[in-house]
């Protein structure tokens, strides 16, 4: 009994206090920003060793709900403007909201495009396994808009909670096609290919960022500066995002 107890206490101490004196800035970022923000974190922490960026990656709408429920978040980067507008309305943002990057939609298919998907109309084919993001998250919302513009009634087999969950199932070859962001294709390496959606039916995807909590406000604002105006811009560009 005693060794187990000691082990448990040791684990608690190690996990709980870690002995880290850095100031923490919690950054909630959209799933599609995962790779970009991991790179931003590395670069920013290298420049400012006294700050610890803690990333919370997920579907933008889930992140918004966490903040509305009082999650202690310093910075929120959403894959649309609507989520931040909601937080502004709720009085949770009092700094500026900045649109810092844009993206485009594309159709992702497993390498080799086994189902021979050529355009959005193919997403209506019943015999294919089609995935979309849930309409509650930005990528699902954008995809619904693009499909409506194209006049296609898609026949999805699953509505995934965020774009990376969708991408994972396309990478595994379990889905024949799905609508994701252009930047996700590069993140998936050789496992997926992109079937472009023509510009006239594509939808502009706009990423917004703002500071949320009062704690460490200057650190949060400094990180946002780094992303929207500093060396972060090159990192975003390298990851395939378009900059305003």
């Amino acid at each position: 009994m005693r060794p187990i107890l000691l082990l448990l206490m040791a684990a608690l101490v190690a996990g709980g206090c870690g002995g880290d004196a850095r100031r923490e800035v919690r950054v909630s970022a959209a799933a599609s920003l995962s790779d970009a923000f991991l790179a931003l974190e590395t670069q920013y922490e290298a420049e400012r060793p006294e700050v610890d960026i803690v990333l919370n990656l997920g579907g933008s709408s889930a992140l918004r709900e966490q903040i509305l429920s009082g999650a202690p978040v310093g910075v929120f980067a959403s894959a649309n403007q609507a989520n931040l507008e909601q937080l502004v309305t709720a009085g949770l943002v009092d700094g500026p909201v900045v649109d810092f990057a844009t993206n485009r939609l594309t159709i992702a298919v497993p390498a080799g495009n086994p189902a021979d998907v050529r355009d959005l109309a193919d997403l209506a084919r019943d015999n294919l396994l089609i995935g979309l993001c849930s309409p509650a998250v930005p990528c699902g919302d954008y995809a619904a808009t693009a499909l409506a513009i194209a006049g296609v009634v898609a026949a999805p087999d699953t509505l995934e909670p965020d774009v990376r969950a969708l991408l994972t199932k396309i990478r595994a070859g379990e889905l024949d096609a799905g609508v994701v962001y252009e930047t996700d294709i590069a993140a998936a390496g050789d496992d997926v290919e992109s079937v472009a959606i023509p510009a006239e039916i594509n939808v502009p995807v706009v990423y917004s960022i703002a500071a949320i909590a009062e704690d460490h406000r200057s650190d949060a604002e400094n990180f946002i500066d780094f992303v929207v105006a500093g060396r972060g811009r090159q990192i975003l560009r390298d990851q395939g995002f378009f900059l305003p």
Binding site: A62, E65, G131, S134, P156, D157, L159, E160, P161
Partner: peptide, 18 residues
């Protein structure tokens, strides 16, 4: 997966509705 009417059980519906 998660599709209303096919595979979206109550816990999944709760997750989406949140």
């Amino acid at each position: 997966g998660n599709l209303p009417g096919r595979t979206q059980t109550l816990p999944l519906a709760v997750f989406v509705a949140m």
